[in-house]
Amino acid sequence: MSSANQARTVARLAAAQALYQMEVSSVGVEAVIREFSDHRFDRALSGEEGEDAPLAGADEPFFAGLVRGVVANQAKIDQAVIKRLAENWKLDRIDATVRAILRAGAFELMNRPDVPTEVVIDEYVELTKSFFEGPEPGFVNGALDGVARDVRR
C-alpha cells in the first residue's frame, strides 16, 4: 500500500473515531478536528495493553473533509443509509461505531467520485473488522454497497 493510500486509511479510521466521539460527547466538529490534529496525529497512543499505537501519517485534510462533510450533510447521508437498512430497522438502533463508519462511508460514496466505489467499501469494511468480529463487517458491506448503487450510476 502506498503511503498516500495508508494516510487515507488512517484518516478514515480517525474520521470514524471523531464522528463517534462527537455523537457520544456532543463536542463540536471544529473542536474534534483540532483535538485530532493537535493530540492524535503523528503521536503514539497508548493501547489497551499498554502498547504504543501510532496514529501517524494521516491525510489530515482528507480527515477534516470527511468529518466536516458528514456533519454538514448528515440528514442526507442518514436518509441514504436508512433506505438500505432492513425493513423496520432504525438508524439509532445500530451501534454508534457502526453508525459513524456508515456515515463516513456513505459521505465518501456520495461526495468523492474520485475515490473508486470498491476502495470506499473495502476500506470501511476493513475498518469495521478492526472493531468487530461478528456480523457487522457484512452489514456495513451490504449497506454501503446499496448506497453505492443508489448514488453512483
Rank of each mutant, 00 (worst) to 15 (best):
K76R: 15
P113L: 11
T9V: 11
F131L: 00
A148S: 15
D38F: 08
L102A: 09
D38P: 00
V151W: 05
N111W: 12
I82M: 09
P61M: 05
R149S: 13
I121D: 00
Y124L: 09
G69T: 11
E136R: 11
M110V: 11
R93M: 12
R112I: 01
V70N: 03
R152H: 10
E108I: 03
A80H: 02
R84V: 04
E108M: 13
E60H: 13
S26G: 08
D59F: 00
F132L: 07
G138A: 14
E118Y: 04
E133M: 08
V115K: 06
D38G: 09
R12D: 03
Q17L: 10
G142F: 03
L91M: 15
R34C: 02
V119W: 10
L55I: 12
G138P: 04
A11G: 05
N73S: 15
G138M: 05
A16H: 02
R152N: 11
D92M: 10
M1N: 09
L13W: 08
A56I: 03
L66P: 01
E123K: 06
R103V: 01
D59C: 04
A148L: 06
A11F: 03
R68H: 14
G28C: 07
L144P: 07
D42K: 08
V98W: 02
P54G: 07
A75K: 10
